[in-house]
Design a protein around this nucleic acid. Structure first.
Length: 382
RNA sequence: GGGGAGAUACCAAAGUGGCCAACUGGGGCAGACUGUAAAUCUGCUGGCUUACGCCUUCGUAGGUUCGAAUCCUGCUCUCCCCA
């Protein structure tokens, strides 16, 4: 089986000291510069952020949606009627949808796995649903994301080898079926969609290699790496990236799913990753945590109560040089919704700034040195 | 002036003889968060201590009792009703 549609990806720069590289990924909704961070918009919204700010201030190039959540609510009929998710949510840039594989993991209490697929109980109303590799391709055709994901099982980070092996067998089976179904169906709205397999295998090199080699046979337009940052030590995550680095094709984008902290992202870039997504900048923002060029801030801490300095003196976002730390703290303490909005905008802008800097330093040839000095600052607790 | 009710930790509010350093909520302080069931969750919140434990607390001064936030008496203060 071969995926028939094409999504052009070209490499534009290569770091001499690591596997980091820059590239351009062409979609029908726009060109994505890699390495890139993709804000997560699970239910058709990047929480607490207007598209206007996402585009003009944060400079997001692609956002995520989630098959499971959108399927349950608002449901595929209204999305189809709207003409796809782009039109429904009024976002004309690229979109990637996760298949719901992560919910197989995070909503494990409400699910049942079979070879056929995964039977869910809706977390909203308890109703029963089946997600099979074919069904999630169908749903993602209706959603109309530019990049759609295969259904996988994302096993917990502490899974033993026997379980991981069994899980991988299921993920491989699902991948093959999903790819066949993708090949035998057409996009609904006149623009191309790409189908990304997901490499699994937990923290076991042999399984990661097996999974990567299996996925590569599909000759797809990009490859995702899943099942990391799910409780395993960070160092093992990096090792897994190194194990599969030589196996995945250099001329196709690689997407590390669900990662991560700013440091994780830079280390991922160094190990050949082109695309990242994570709820961290938005969720942590809503919980009062800011990622800044000088370190992390818990804006709810008392120490910021009378600090009238800007949020991030080196920040590039609109909010950075408008609002003070003391004001943002006040908003959080008072439970004002604007606090979540400002923090979300700041964090996302910071993440997008970070990957832009990474691209610039890859092009300049000093990525590794920059990365190492940056990580020290990023991990400082202010 | 007469009658009634009440004073518990930062606030509110349980507790009416031992299981009480004292429920619970708020507030405060801190922590967590990685393909979002999250504007969420967790811990601490009298003092010393890592902990065990010890010490000082339920308006105040005494008393009863083996033992008191809880029972009795005086005092101080607050609130409500009538005049």
């Amino acid at each position: 089986m071969t995926i028939t549609e094409n999504m052009k990806f070209e490499k534009t720069a290569k770091d001499p000291d690591s596997s980091a590289s820059c590239g351009l990924l062409y979609t029908d909704h726009g060109v994505i510069e890699t390495p890139i961070f993709m804000p997560v918009g699970t239910s058709g919204t990047v929480k607490a952020v207007f598209h206007r700010d996402l585009k003009n201030d944060i400079k997001a190039q692609i956002i995520l949606g989630n098959t499971y959540h959108l399927y349950l609510r608002p449901g595929t009929e209204i999305i189809r009627k709207a003409g796809g998710l782009h039109k429904f949510i009024s976002w004309d840039g690229p979109i990637l949808t996760d298949s719901g594989g992560y919910q197989v993991f995070s909503l494990a209490a409400n699910r049942k796995l079979t070879t056929e697929g995964c039977t869910f109980r809706s977390h909203i109303d308890g109703s029963k649903h089946l997600f099979s590799p074919e069904v999630v391709v169908e749903i993602q055709r209706v959603i109309g994301a530019d990049i759609i994901m295969a259904l996988d099982e994302c096993p917990p980070g502490d899974s033993d080898h026997a379980y991981a092996k069994k899980s991988l067998k299921l993920t491989k089976n699902w991948l093959e079926r999903g790819a066949v179904h993708f090949d035998s169906t057409e996009p609904l709205y006149g623009y191309k969609q790409a189908f990304f397999p997901i490499v699994q295998g937990c923290i076991y090199p042999d399984l990661r290699i097996e999974s990567a080699e299996h996925a590569v046979k599909l000759n797809s337009e990009g490859y995702a790496i899943g099942g990391l940052s799910v409780g395993e030590p960070t160092e093992l995550m990096y090792q897994m990236l190194e194990v599969i680095d030589p196996i995945l094709p250099k001329d196709k984008p690689r997407y590390l799913m669900g990662v991560g902290t700013p440091s994780n992202i830079l280390e991922g870039v160094a190990r050949g990753i082109d695309m990242f997504d994570c709820v961290m900048p938005t969720r942590n923002a809503r919980n009062g945590m800011l990622f800044t060029s000088e370190g992390v801030i818990n804006i709810k801490n008392r120490k910021w109560a009378d600090d009238l300095s800007f949020l991030d003196i080196n920040g590039t976002s609109f909010v950075d040089m408008v609002y003070s730390k003391a004001y943002l703290r006040h908003l959080f303490v008072a439970g004002e919704i604007l606090g979540a909005q400002i923090a979300s905008e700041h964090n996302l802008a910071f993440y997008l700034w970070l990957v832009k800097e990474a691209r610039n330093h890859i092009k300049a040839g000093d990525f590794k040195a920059w990365k190492n000095s940056m990580i020290k600052r990023l991990e400082t607790k202010l």
